[in-house]
Design a protein around this nucleic acid. Sequence first.
DNA 1: CGGTAGTGGAGCATCAGTGTTCCGTTTTTG
DNA 2: CAAAAACGGAACACTGATGCTCCACTACCG
Lengths: 190, 190
Amino acid sequence: MVDEPAAPESGTRARTRRAILDAGVRVLSQQSGASLAEVAAAAGVGRTTMHRYFPERADLLTGITNDLLEQIAAATQRARPEQGPAVAALERLCQAYFALGDGLLLTLNEPHLFTDPAWNEEGEPERALLQLVERGHAEGTIDPGLSPAWVQDVLWSLLYAAWMHARDSDVPEHDALALCLRTLRKAVAP
Amino acid sequence: MVDEPAAPESGTRARTRRAILDAGVRVLSQQSGASLAEVAAAAGVGRTTMHRYFPERADLLTGITNDLLEQIAAATQRARPEQGPAVAALERLCQAYFALGDGLLLTLNEPHLFTDPAWNEEGEPERALLQLVERGHAEGTIDPGLSPAWVQDVLWSLLYAAWMHARDSDVPEHDALALCLRTLRKAVAP
DNA sequence: CGGTAGTGGAGCATCAGTGTTCCGTTTTTG
DNA sequence: CAAAAACGGAACACTGATGCTCCACTACCG
């Protein structure tokens, strides 16, 4: 993870890069087979320009992968999963991840898109969540019948459901998140 | 839905057709962009043969769509969603849908693949489920804070999670279903 | 004002997937 | 067994996405 050893990356470039990455997530989360031209258009950028930032399709995917991993790591850290009661921490995590938006869909929907080795490595976020659940088991505040791995899957799938619910059933995002939290809280209760 | 007006379809053809449809679901549920050659190979069938059954890609998708719709309808009917206590009926539905296997993934993951008009029509299964939840509200056995549409989304996303859990974490399918049911039951409880 | 970074359009070769045809082989069936 | 049905390989044209290059335009900065 050694980044920019001396790559200040002029503000303009950084902005363009962001626009492309965001457009990539937005477009690919809906059509994983979308053409690069579509992504470029969605980013409001010429196909040539995109090619300058990400020479091949694989490079774009790598870029998105790293970006998502960073965002997930940042969200995890922000939620302080090791502090306070387990259930409260779990809800904080849920809220933090919800902010990933379309990244959620991409993460869950198209895991096979990410061929990067970095993707499937057990990351710090994973570990934090699993430990969190074990803490809940010890506290007696999380149903011991639900394995940590299963709780993890439930968390992500509920996030997915909530995001889609907001997107398709045009429920305000805030309400969708509230439903998600309420459902999660009850689901993990002993 | 007027089918075979006089198309007995020799047992051989029916079997080949099934093999192709099943392979299509299996392959496309993992790689929505998979080539037709891959589907044919997975079905143990020549590309030429597949072309005889489904002249274009769109025809295969239509075939899969109709097949899934039938399977969902059959599963719904089998679960008798209108009988007995709402929660019990919901669990029966959950079990019945779980049997769809990879079809679940395809249904949730790649809704955009199905361009058929028949797909997005509000089907009988949808209506049955929504009514079921309303019945639960009336009975006082389903959390009134959870809208029918949300419960529907939760049901499908938990099914998705359970199927993936069985597939990737090599948990026996039966155990995954049990986790799913347990989680769903608690999630919808008032 | 001149230089430079950033951009985007046009064009081109390549390649994989597709749709389709033809024909020989295997399997089913009467 | 012999006819009919079903199958699969080979080959071909076509299409769209991709990777790439070259050049012209714009905006910003010293």
